[in-house]
Write a protein that binds this DNA or RNA. Structure first.
Length: 839
RNA sequence: GCCGAGGUGGCGGAACAGGCAGACGCGACGGACUUAAAAUCCGUUGGGCUUCGGUCCUUGCGGGUUCGAAUCCCGCCCUCGGCACCA
């Protein structure tokens, strides 16, 4: 698949320009990149410290998972963000641009099972490789701040945060049906179940299992998480988060119950359509609903039990399928609709979810498609209570879910249903039949994983004291080194006696440790806080340094994290804010989502086996070319299919820049640059500075490079025609190097040195432009006849409307189209065009 | 099904407060250099017709608004991403 440039054109061949050019040393990226990377590292050029004299800029790129090697997709995420960070640095900001590794996770453990290598060894070897690869990119990462989440120095504080949340009542343990991946042998959060109920990691259909699990109470922050004001995030991501949280407004309605031996005297249901209350003809419980057992009539027991069993054994794929026929059974009892005193039969059906609302619904088949299908299949009555416009009593063939006029609804008949919603809600609240409430799609975050390679949950179970948190002073709870990795995939911690057996911190009696570890998304909740003071040992971070750097000014990463990492991290930030640990409401002020580089229509990943390794490109063409190419292929937010056929374009361009700047002169006996040519050169230079600056601000790297290429082409032509003498030329070349510095940091540094400037170009200011020099003196006036282009003419910007009209009408090419016709109108757009309308 | 983004030359893509469609680059073709190839440099390159002056067509498809539409409106088709019994 690596076509073209990798298959043996001789890029390493010497080439000297044709004609009578002076020889210049060839551009040798391998040599200069190694040289400058070593120099920058030796000089700690990119090391940053808190500095009150400069405005801080925290440029963060999502850290990679330690899969083993970096692919083009990683570079696509990291190279452009580095360019942006470098640009900010040259603009005078005190830029922190750190890098680290998301190092806990299942693949390490799978490697342990498969290859007998310890997850720690596997992970740290990968960190080595990836760090080395990252360094070849020539990024301005401050490596002294590196964070690796699987090291005890780090996960100690992950555990510490867990305890903080636990004490604040934000971490709790509960038994509930969980998504279980039989392949990975662990539970998954809702966010990690993709498609039609498949495990995000391995694609295995997920099944449901009742397990004791640890949760973080993210739902407590649902409302605040819906609020994105004050952060500059892409609409797309904010929308995804809003949809994921899924807040809806409605009424919780009480239905009457009266059964001997049943304590509960009501069933509560949530509905967003109180206006349809008179259309309720039955009620449906989720099969797992705790009231079902109590309310099932003796004669229905067997059938109900069988149905529940069947529902439980289904995989999520089967259960979630919307094409599936709806099934359910009558449980033999009734509830009372308090508004009209009607008895409605109670059913169970697996289309009702236990985890949403109250786990039971009032069924209004006429006005809800699911209820309609169910009623249709089981012969239950369908009563119209919202009449569509022009309805004359005919039967529905599908549910009518829009607004309409209320009918069959007692005293509310004739009311528009939108108004009826409010009227019925008021009526129910006044009579104690219900109350207005909100419901959320968002569930609490399931954080326990039945795996070894994660931060152990710092909890001890004691037969006397119950659930006891590990005291802070005993942290970290270290992963045992002698755990056994069994091919069955069961958690090694469970069977590791040296780990499990412990003493209770309270009573000193024998006790056992929690063997679940934390979801790796907890590690990534706070890694960016750690970067501010990675060696701090009295807390997860040094509060003063944190106060200087946080929040993150610019975060970049993939949109696939919209409802996972990006939502979790916001929640976590708000939780620790309420604990007084941080003072800001949002961790990431600005977010930019780059697109994904796909290969054979799929995202690159080691597990899919479709990765493209950048190392070979770097070895042949240098990092600067690879960086440039990734930015040039299209808008960063768009991503796209990987195709290396255009990379030679960047290589050739960088070579042209190299030669342009280092060649003394081309040809002889050139006419010298005159005043006019110099003015034009300054004009072009400043126009380019503006364009490049504006594009960099907005992450429009592809057009920024196009602008630099155009400038290069212009300079090259000018050099051929007018020579290189004069201060305007020197200035243009200096500016070109500076503009190039973020994109091609090695080449720019080398050219900077070779042209006699002082080290380092990366400590220079980014050029600024002079509006006066950018202003055009002449513009091209477009002349149309009936909207069709007929002529264009260069005119001074100062041209008046009447001059422009007169000019347009006098042009030869225009006259050919208007002679003999009547001029009906002449449109003039200042400085742009004249459109002559003839009839 | 719902929500979001998008459809422009052979290819990646420029140009959207409505005003020169195709910047920049790749590829292709022709030329220079070379024993030759590669590399490099110079030119041409959306399509049709052309008396070589031009001229007509062209931004997924069909309508519309406008002096003027890739851009705005209406109706379709397709691609990608998210959600999908959330009551």
């Amino acid at each position: 698949m690596l076509v073209g440039v990798l298959t043996g054109y001789g890029f390493l061949c010497y080439h000297y320009p044709a004609r009578d050019r002076k020889m210049v040393p060839k551009y040798n990226p391998q040599e200069i990149e190694t040289k400058w990377q070593a120099r920058w590292e030796a000089d700690n050029l990119y090391r940053v410290h808190e500095n009150s004299e400069r405005t801080k800029w925290y440029a963060l790129t999502m850290f990679p998972y330690t899969s083993g090697d970096l692919h083009i997709g990683h570079w696509y995420a990291m190279a452009p963000s580095d360019v942006h960070a470098r640009f900010k640095r040259m603009q005078g900001y005190n830029v922190m641009h750190p890098m680290g590794f998301d190092a806990f996770g299942l693949p390490a453990e799978n490697a342990a099972i498969r290859e007998g290598i310890h997850p720690y060894t596997w992970t740290m070897q990968n960190v080595e490789t990836m760090r080395r690869q990252l360094k070849t990119m020539g990024s301005m990462y401050d490596w002294s701040r590196e964070v690796v989440t699987c090291l005890p120095d780090y996960y100690k504080w992950t555990q510490w945060f867990f305890l903080k949340l636990y004490h604040a009542g934000l971490a709790y343990r509960s038994k509930s049906p969980a998504n279980w991946c039989p392949e990975c042998q662990t539970v998954l959060a809702n966010e990690q179940v993709v498609g039609d109920g498949l495990c995000e990691r391995c694609g295995t259909p997920v099944i449901r299992r009742d397990l004791e699990q640890w949760f973080f109470r993210i739902t407590r922050y649902a409302d605040e998480l819906l609020e994105h004001s004050g952060i500059e995030w892409p609409e797309r991501v904010k929308l995804m988060q809003r949809n994921w949280i899924g807040k809806s407004y409605g009424v919780e309605i009480s239905f009457g119950l009266d059964y001997e031996g049943v304590e509960e005297k009501e069933i509560r249901v949530f509905t967003t359509r109180p206006d349809t209350i008179f259309g309720v003809t039955f009620m449906v419980f989720a099969p797992e609903h705790p009231l079902v057992a109590k309310l099932t009539a003796p004669e229905c027991k067997e059938e109900v039990q069988a149905y529940i069993e069947r529902a439980r054994s289904q995989t999520e794929v089967e259960r979630l399928s919307t094409e599936k026929e709806k099934t359910g059974v009558f449980i033999g009892s009734y509830a009372v609709n308090k508004l009209n005193g009607e008895k409605v039969p109670l059913w169970i059906a697996d289309y009702v979810l236990l985890s949403y609302g109250t786990g039971a619904v009032m069924a209004v088949p006429a006005h809800d498609q699911r209820d309609f299908e169910f009623a249709h299949d089981y012969g239950l009555p369908i009563r119209v209570v919202i009449a569509p416009d022009g309805w004359s009593g005919e039967e529905f063939t599908e549910a009518y879910v829009e607004a309409g006029t209320m009918v069959n609804s007692g005293q509310f008949d004739g009311m528009p249903s939108e108004q009826g919603k409010e009227a019925i809600s008021d009526f129910m609240e006044a009579n104690g039949y219900g109350r207005r409430t909100e419901s959320y799609r968002l569930r609490d975050w399931l954080i326990s994983r039945q795996r070894y390679w994660g931060a152990p949950i710092p909890i001890i179970y004691c037969s006397n004291c119950g659930t006891v948190p590990v005291p802070e002073s005993d942290l970290p709870v270290l992963l045992p080194e002698d755990a056994e990795f069994k091919p069955t995939g069961e958690s090694p911690l469970k069977y590791c006696e040296s780990f499990v057996n412990t003493t209770c911190p309270q009573c000193r009696g024998p006790a056992s440790r929690e063997t679940d570890t934390m979801d790796t998304f907890i590690c990534s909740n706070w890694y960016f806080l750690r970067y501010t003071s990675p060696d701090y040992d009295r807390g997860p971070f040094d509060p003063e340094k944190l106060a200087y750097w946080m929040p993150v000014d610019q975060y970049t990463g993939g949109a696939e994290h919209a409802t996972m990492h990006l939502l979790y991290a916001r929640f976590f930030n708000k939780a620790i804010r309420d604990l007084g640990l941080v003072s800001f409401d949002e961790p990431f002020t600005r977010l930019f989502n780059q697109g994904i580089i796909v290969m054979e229509r799929q995202k690159m990943s080691k597990s899919r086996g479709n990765v493209v390794n950048p190392d070979e490109y770097v070895a042949r063409l240098g990092a600067d070319t690879v960086r440039g190419y990734l930015m040039f292929v299209g808008p960063w937010e768009q991503g796209g299919g990987w195709d290396d056929s255009g990379i030679s374009g960047i290589w050739r361009w960088l070579n042209r820049v190299w030669n342009l700047i280092l060649e003394e002169q081309r040809g002889t006996d050139l006419p010298r640059m005159d005043r006019e040519a110099e003015n034009e050169l300054r004009h072009q230079t400043h126009k380019t500075i503006r364009r490049v600056t504006e594009d960099l601000e907005k992450f429009r790297f592809n057009t920024m490079l196009a602008g630099l290429m155009e400038f290069t082409n212009y300079l090259s032509k000018l050099k051929d025609e007018r020579g290189v003498a004069g201060s305007a030329w020197q200035d243009a070349v200096d500016k070109l190097m500076l503009l190039l510095a973020p994109t091609a940091p090695h080449m720019a540094e080398e050219l900077w040195e070779r042209t006699g400037h002082a080290y380092s170009i990366h400590n220079q200011s980014f050029p600024s432009w002079d509006e006066k020099l950018v202003a055009e003196e002449e513009v091209t006036l477009v002349i149309q006849v009936n909207g069709k282009l007929r002529d264009r003419v260069s005119v001074p910007v100062s041209i008046t409307e009447s001059e422009a009209r007169e000019l347009a009408l006098s042009r030869e090419r225009v006259r050919a189209h208007i002679d003999g016709k009547q001029i009906k109108n002449v449109i003039y757009v200042p400085g742009r065009l004249v459109n002559v309308v003839v009839g």
